[in-house]
Nucleic acid binder design. Structure first.
Lengths: 255, 255
DNA sequence: CCTGCCGCCTCACGTCGCGTGAGGGTCAAG
DNA sequence: CTTGACCCTCACGCGACGTGAGGCGGCAGG
């Protein structure tokens, strides 16, 4: 009991027999056993694995990589599920961006507006930056903040992301403004902006209390990718913003 | 001006030069012209076409089919955009189902629940029924109701779809109940149910006034796929529901 | 004017994830 | 004891490119 032939598995999982043969051939999914006649017999555990395989396949992973992921014994099953959920969120987000792009294109067409070639393709670029996401998972995968962030962002719709991006851009442009005006990082304006930033994160991603915010500030100068994000707006901005964040945290905690 | 080399196009569209060569080779996208030396020169129109190609490719269409779609001169550009938006909605919906499945799996894991093999894979089946969608587009593609439906459903989240499904199931089970109890199609109960159904559609898909509802009713018996949906609940239910819909419309319009 | 060097060209074979037979065993039912 | 459904193992084919190989075009620097 609870052992299935290729045909049965194929029917259940809606894949072809050939696919199962292939997975067996490349060692991605070998049945738990065989009958004396050489017939493949799949166990429940094999079905579980097949499900995982189909999942990652759906997301476009090459089979070899799927094997590596699944055979990495250092990753717990629940970590897999979280990872899958995260990947889905990304993929959905990407498609929603595409949908937004199509909507813009429809608008543009109605209005008779012409887009520049770069504009037309910008959504395809979209900096997949999967490596960055992976690293984030490695670094923070088991902090509460990370989990909270995953839980929230997984449910965000395209509209949500757009609103968040608008807010982020607004904060950044205010930052640039105040910084360019020559205000000190310890000035009221700078600290207020830092506070706005902290609340923005708390609202959309995870509870960003002052200690965490300090850590973020440090990272904005320590991690070149974050730094670049601010430095490209204005040289010295990363450092300045970090100082503003720390000043703001000090102010809040000295009350 | 506004003419690009392969390398430039590749950079803009984030594809490889080889891909552009390939598309040229199979006649999917041939550059508008060539230099005397044989260098490909892409025009703005070529970029537009490339964008469309990448779009359908992203959604998993084979290149041959993409060529057919794009070369079908009977389809207007705006129809393409609508179609793309619709396809994206489907794809997003599918992924959101997967996300929901993952969430369920996480729950099940926490609770230590075991799922049957069929349950584990059910989301992969999901009856892609693209053919049906295509046909719907052909038949209804330029009615207001269809456009409205597309506009709304494109924004639905997973949670929305689930709520809609719950409502639909509720209506159907009430239908079955009343029908099985032997009520006439012209009875108050039957007509009220028809009215509920009409409002359900109006709320979630498009303004379904009585004339349209009548048309729907007719289709529920005329189109075997719709009919099957009701007939599988109980033989004769499709016909009965159609009569109830018409009775309800008559009642409303006789006021 | 020659020399790099980069970008472009055209074959042409390799890869990945299977599809699609070919040729042949297995097994329960009639 | 045949029939038909299902299973097996090769093995070639295909779509959508990747990846050189070998060679031309065009321009900057010496």
């Amino acid at each position: 009991m609870s052992s299935y032939s290729v045909g049965e598995v194929a029917a259940i999982a809606k894949v072809t027999v050939r696919t199962l043969h292939h997975y067996d051939g490349i060692g991605l999914l070998s049945p738990g056993g065989r009958t004396p006649a050489g017939y493949r017999r799949y166990q429940d555990a094999d079905l579980d694995r097949l499900q995982q395989i189909l999942f990652y396949r759906e997301l476009g992973f090459p089979l070899e990589e799927i094997a590596a992921i699944l055979d990495d014994h250092s990753v717990s099953p629940s970590a897999h599920l979280r990872r899958q959920h995260q990947l889905l969120g990304e993929r959905i987000g990407h498609l929603q961006e595409l949908a937004a792009a199509v909507e813009r294109a429809m608008e543009a067409q109605k209005m008779g507006i012409q887009l520049t070639p770069e504009e037309k393709f910008e959504v395809f670029g979209a900096d997949y930056q999967e490596s960055w996401e992976e690293e984030a998972q490695e670094r923070w995968g088991d902090t509460d903040a990370w989990k909270q962030s995953q839980a929230r962002t997984g449910r965000y719709t395209k509209a949500d992301w757009e609103r968040i991006k608008v807010e982020t851009d607004a904060i950044n442009s205010r930052l640039l403004e105040v910084f360019s005006a020559g205000a000190a990082a310890g000035s009221g304006e700078a600290m207020d902006l830092a506070e706005t930033h902290r609340q923005h994160i708390s609202e959309h991603f995870y509870d960003c209390h002052f200690a965490i915010h300090r850590g973020l500030g440090e990272m904005y100068v320590a991690d070149p990718r974050f730094a670049a994000n601010y430095e490209k707006l204005a040289p010295g901005l990363a450092q300045w913003f970090r100082d503003a964040i720390i000043a703001n945290a000090d102010r809040a905690e000295s009350v």
